[in-house]
Write a protein that binds this DNA or RNA. Sequence first.
DNA 1: CTATTAATTCGTATGTTTGCGACATACAAA
DNA 2: TTTGTATGTCGCAAACATACGAATTAATAG
Lengths: 111, 111
Amino acid sequence: MYAKTEDFDLELQDLAQAAKLFSHPARLAIIRLLAARNTCISGDIANELPLSRATVCQHLQELKNARLIRGEISGLNVNYCLNVEKWSAIKKQFEALFDMEIQDVNCICIN
Amino acid sequence: MYAKTEDFDLELQDLAQAAKLFSHPARLAIIRLLAARNTCISGDIANELPLSRATVCQHLQELKNARLIRGEISGLNVNYCLNVEKWSAIKKQFEALFDMEIQDVNCICIN
DNA sequence: CTATTAATTCGTATGTTTGCGACATACAAA
DNA sequence: TTTGTATGTCGCAAACATACGAATTAATAG
């Protein structure tokens, strides 16, 4: 986090951090995969993405640190799944953003 | 955009790019300001944020490049406003993401 | 025990974002 | 024309993100 980020409302910091999770197509692809399937082995995820195993792992860790996904060791494999509670919480945050009332603009604003 | 980003679905690339707009509290704060007011002078925006004018200008340009906001010159001032069409489009993209059906998870996933 | 296999971490290279001071532009008033 | 004011751009530095090969860890099979 850049230093100045702390100078904003916590609510905005929080939402910005959630948005960052969605700001890379690999992470969106992972989320989509985990939503679509209920089996979710790390290696399978890596095989479906056009990235190296190491890079996919990094994205998985980011989502895991944010508690949006969870991983469970099962022998040699690791099963990942969405944390639906966190998913719902983020969904609510974005709903609040988009439900925000918008005043009529008073500029013509061509450009 | 990193090279590998192009290897993903256009839909995911697009959504990731929209999410990036929301991934900094300064940009969220700007959006919130523009939604709340119908007068929206560049200098006033900069004064409300804990950042230098140059930095705020940079964030404004980013939002403008993405067509989420528009700026209109009015004498010495520049009036900014939300582009409600783009705002609605992005809102729809996120609604589609969050309306995605989620399968029941089959892992216990403590960690 | 020793391979084998799956997953992750480490180290490193490269690219992007953030932040700002200084400079440039552009309009308006004196 | 000169001066002042509002904006925006440039160039730099620091922080952060992305990507991957190589090394590491950890469980299992032989």
